[in-house]
Write a protein that binds this DNA or RNA. Structure first.
Lengths: 368, 368
DNA sequence: GTGAAAGCGCTAACAT
DNA sequence: ATGTTAGCGCTTTCAC
């Protein structure tokens, strides 16, 4: 079974199957086959096991031996193949994370918070994003599962039927993020998007506004921002409960909402109600776009129009006037999720409740 | 993790690989263990190869058989283990991507452009980020290599010594992004950050400004934004060449630059030179922060101060006045990189030059 | 402290 | 159309 130098030992028939169709391993770097543990062991004149120990538990290797292995490893630029290793250890070292988008700094913050916790424990985040598409999320779940992650983190409580089935049968901890599922698949760390809508409405109403508008994205069969919708719906309900009009609650376009959503939204609202007094955008991004449009139209904030958003994106505090918003500590959300996941993997359990609420808070600033 | 028997103490000669005499676990997947191809094969009464073909080339399987396999797959919620598969195929299906940060929508756009190309070909992006730390980048490179990606994409041309060694020995295509290395490790798709600085300086100078400032992040031993620095340096050189003062070229704080960098930077510059006429920020983000600070100080743009940035972030066009900037099509950069990488993997070569320049363009808007 | 044997879950290359 | 054989690169277990 020796098959070191040259290709001795390999069946010569291999030549047959070379119809340039499929890319073969050697296609690109003929001279450069990746070094294996066997190459190292031979160079260092030790067994493969000793090389393995050198990486997993160096103390078990005699210093002199260790040094020889180190030399060989360095000479060959050897990096152990984790995929091969995990086959035996049954630990992939992957934590899967499926987000709606990467282009949202709040979600990026979650990834950052998670990484902080996972890095020292040598887990690697396997990040995927669904572009707010339910079918794409399902595809991502399957892709992730194929990599045997030790835990899987998804966004929200709404998934495709098959996606849910896959998650339930995953056999590893599952965490749903940024929501408070009434019936979590396994665990959840999030906040109430309905609370966000209520807090926003309460704030605007308490300021005495009557003609209150709102801006959100629409939805297609496949693309939905469930959490944004929840914020909008609860906002609308709160308006209704207060006996206020709800015909200024706008949904249009595809998620995620953009600056342009906010700018265009203002135009629509103003046409519908010139005496518009306040607007809640389900994302700071739309709120900022709207504020810029106000500027173009010489509408002074908050004197002529009160504006608030959601997310407390970096730009919110920097705006002039600074944007009132409903904030969530996404960094912390990521860290808590990381801690939970690590507990779940190592202890198989955690003191945390099945559903953890990190809460939301009104961040009152100059735009209202 | 109980071992199965079959490896008994006695050395059996030539044990058959396939259906051993010794019965193993029952056909159904044990509650606690992910189903394997063997579980499926037993449930469907076929060999493992047939199950394998069902996934890789269903047409080779008789419809009736296919149906039985499908049933079993579905009943067991079986998802093939890609790590195990790649051991044999020598194709991990991973493309590694190492970015400085996820919190930058331009880099997020690169990931998006890449995904567009790679998705249909069933590659999975393995994303890592370095937080602008050189040592962390090195660590990421090693982590990635351990997953045997079929190509590895890194940002920039500056890496740690060992990082470079690892990349050179990777044995797979390596693409350096967002830079134009004079001596690329393998391939590069990017633009000239020095051009950016020159274009910015030329623009501001052509407008007749004399007291021109600039804002960038500083650097620590480990944290550097090489590309941002290149933009700043070439900007400074252009100023010098034009015989203009360069004492208003500012660097401070850690990368990446933030809104706050821009706001604080303006204060410093104004203190140093009350007659400041124009500012170039190495990132739109800092430029936007600076514009907001202008607003607070009732400095009118562009009348009192011309401002320009880099990156053409979404917010740039939405500002009031809209921000003049130097733009790069990062989406396209991602797509081109994707196409290149796919060519390189499948054909082992590509018509592309070793270094591809996607170019930069001055986007003249209202802030100058 | 080190090594030999066995096998993780999968598939390429052959047989039928 | 389907099955058998022989590993892929690594680590577990157990022997020395």
């Amino acid at each position: 079974m020796t098959r070191q130098r040259g290709t001795g030992g390999v069946k010569a028939k291999k030549r047959l199957a070379e119809p340039t169709a499929k890319p073969r391993a050697a296609a690109r770097a003929p001279a450069n086959r990746k070094a294996t543990i066997r190459d190292v062991s031979r160079l260092a004149h030790v067994s493969r096991m000793t090389v393995s120990r050198y990486f997993s538990n160096p103390d078990l290797v005699l210093p002199a031996t260790r040094e020889r292995v180190a030399q060989a490893v360095s000479r060959l630029s050897y990096v152990p193949d984790r995929a091969a290793g995990s086959l035996t250890t049954r630990r992939s070292g992957f934590i899967a994370l499926i987000l709606p988008t990467l282009t949202n700094s709040n979600f990026a913050a979650v990834a950052k918070g998670l990484t902080e916790i996972l890095r020292s424990l040598n887990y690697q985040l396997l990040i995927g994003y669904s572009s707010y598409s339910i079918s794409e999320e399902e595809r991502q779940i399957e892709l992730m599962l194929a990599r045997r992650p030790e835990a899987i983190i998804v966004t929200g409580e709404q998934h495709s039927r098959r996606g849910t089935t896959l998650l339930m049968g995953a056999g590893v901890p599952v965490v749903e993020l940024a929501d408070l599922p009434s019936r979590p698949i396994d665990r959840a760390v999030g906040f109430s998007n309905r609370d966000v809508g209520r807090v926003a409405a309460a704030h605007l109403i308490s300021l005495g506004h009557k003609n209150i508008g709102a801006i959100a994205a629409g939805r297609t069969d496949d693309m939905v921002d469930f959490r944004g919708d929840a914020r909008l719906e609860s906002f609308e309900e709160a308006l209704k409960t207060a006996g206020l009009r709800t015909d200024l609650v706008l949904r249009y376009g595809e998620p995620p909402v953009s600056y342009a959503h906010g700018a265009a939204g203002l135009a629509v609202l103003l046409e519908r109600e010139p005496k518009l007094e306040a607007v809640f955008a389900i994302s700071d991004i739309a709120a900022v776009g709207l504020m810029m449009e106000c500027r173009r139209r010489r509408i002074e904030i908050p004197r002529d129009l009160a504006v608030m958003g959601f997310g407390d994106f970096d730009i919110a505090a920097e705006m002039e006037p600074p944007l009132t918003t409903v904030g969530v500590n996404f960094d912390e959300l990521g860290r808590q999720t990381g801690t939970l996941v690590v507990d779940l993997i190592s202890a198989g359990t955690s003191a945390e409740a099945r559903v953890t609420n990190v809460g939301v808070s009104l961040i009152r600033r100059g735009s209202t």
